[in-house]
């Protein structure tokens, strides 16, 4: 019994210590941001690894999610004779929820885990330490550009996901199921608001990009410098990111769209 309490207590202390280290890490990372103004090529380089390499999975997933939405939405709406509303249904689900959330989950799996593994490996092979001794601050040289690249990539990826998804739903709805294309688009336009829906979706994706990139970089930087430690850190990045995305999504949705 005492042992159970003790391990619970140790787990709690560990968690708080990690949280503390994570926030110190965030502060150091943000302090490294201004120096990027003079070295923007570092960010461009990272945009390639973090952003460009995630585009393919985002395109494919977005297309299929949109097609499934089109199919399922049609089957439900047609019972009420409201299949004209398919456009709204699809655009609102994608722009408000699925775009930001699913692309952030994919981003955590694709780019987040790669970032953790890369930083963790650099730590375990003493590259970070070596840089420090060459008077190059890894926070500025390595961490900050990756963070900014994640922050920039996420909303762009989410927008691509939503746009492709709507296109996929249109393909299924209009091409396959024969929903009137004029009604599809005009209803969508009438009911989807730029500020209420699209900008809020963009804000969500920026928040997710911030959190996922932060978790990924911190897990790599804080990893036990062995191959096993880096492996575990990579898993933690994906799991913690998923929790953070879904939890924050509820909070943000309540703040933006709900009347709670």
């Amino acid at each position: 019994m005492i042992e159970v309490l003790r391990s619970l207590g140790r787990w709690g202390l560990d968690t708080f210590q990690r949280l503390g280290r994570g926030h110190i890490f965030l502060m150091q990372m943000l302090a490294g941001m201004p120096s990027l103004a003079f070295r923007f090529s570092l960010v461009v380089q990272q945009l390639f690894y973090v952003g460009v390499l995630s585009v393919l999975i985002i395109l494919i997933s977005g297309l299929f999610v949109g097609m499934v939405l089109g199919l399922q939405g049609y089957n439900t709406l047609v019972d009420f004779g409201a299949e004209e509303s398919l456009g709204v249904l699809v655009s609102l689900s994608l722009v408000r929820e699925l775009g930001p959330v699913v692309s952030a989950l994919l981003f955590a799996g694709r780019a987040g885990s790669a970032l953790t593994a890369e930083i963790g490996l650099m730590k375990s092979t003493e590259q970070l330490s070596g840089m420090e001794m060459m008077a190059v601050d890894p926070m500025r040289r390595i961490i900050a550009p990756r963070f900014l690249a994640g922050l920039i990539s996420m909303p762009l990826l989410a927008a691509i996901f939503s746009a492709v998804g709507i296109f996929g739903a249109f393909l299924v709805g209009h091409g396959l199921l024969g929903v009137d294309d004029g009604a599809f688009w005009s209803q969508m336009q009438a009911k989807t608001d730029w500020y209420e829906d699209i900008l809020n979706g963009v804000i969500k994706s920026i928040v997710f990009g911030f959190v996922v990139t932060w978790i990924a970089l911190f897990e790599g930087y804080d990893a036990t410098p062995t191959s096993e430690g880096v492996g575990r850190a990579t898993t933690r990045t994906v799991v913690h990111s998923a929790f953070a995305i879904l939890g924050l999504d509820f909070v943000l949705t309540a703040l933006m769209f709900g009347d709670i």
Partner: peptide, 19 residues
């Protein structure tokens, strides 16, 4: 400290080359 480190060289056990 970073200024001082510019005047120090260190050779790590592993070499610590950027891979």
């Amino acid at each position: 400290l970073y200024e001082l480190r510019k005047r120090m060289g260190m050779l790590f056990q592993s070499g610590a080359l950027l891979t």
